[in-house]
Design a protein around this nucleic acid. Sequence first.
DNA 1: TGATTTTACTACGACAGACGTACTACTACA
DNA 2: TGTAGTAGTACGTCTGTCGTAGTAAAATCA
Lengths: 108, 108
Amino acid sequence: MISSDVIRGYNDTIILYLLLEEPSYGYEISKQIRTLSDEMYIIKETTLYSAFSRLETNGYIESFYGDETNGKRRTYYRITSAGRKYYEEKCNEWEITKQVVEKFIKQS
Amino acid sequence: MISSDVIRGYNDTIILYLLLEEPSYGYEISKQIRTLSDEMYIIKETTLYSAFSRLETNGYIESFYGDETNGKRRTYYRITSAGRKYYEEKCNEWEITKQVVEKFIKQS
DNA sequence: TGATTTTACTACGACAGACGTACTACTACA
DNA sequence: TGTAGTAGTACGTCTGTCGTAGTAAAATCA
């Protein structure tokens, strides 16, 4: 299990990645993060929804209501072109971050 | 330049790494981070000194006063065995974090 | 000799992101 | 009818980072 502090800077990036192909909604994204990470990272609900609102405020995603549901009404999110651009930047930043961190890590 | 949010979870680890071989002090560590990261990451003074106090509170480092100085009196820090153990754990965690994050990153 | 720069650190308050807890609301199914 | 699963909201707290400012002593330079 990963501590939230180390992944903190990448929550937004992870969410954007999961919206690249098609719009999705909170509960689904939360499950995808869980399974794609092999249960190594389970995002907290409150963290996820506050990320959505931050991303929307910043213009990286847009929300709309869906019809079909298996419970409470879903809020779907769609990535914007600004969001795609931001995602690309974060991917580049990741490469640099990785290089920097690894100067201070002893590989076992 | 790396944004502080992405490296946030690794400030403590970076500091501990720089104390593995021999005790050091704030100003020196700050310069080492700067040069070792090729100017990619420049830690803020306040961030650094608050990390020291956190690490000491947690028993990962110990402080003592040095004699020689080129300015104000230095506070040196020495890593403890608990600190070494914590560092090792963080290195292992890094490997996992890296794997997880890279599932959500598109390499260019 | 006096002024400025560099070294080395401290104090204090603000802010953002993550999180705990609790709650709402609707569907499916036994 | 009630329990589990789906889907999301509200609210307050905590931690780490950072901006700003200030202290203090040695080194450097004019």
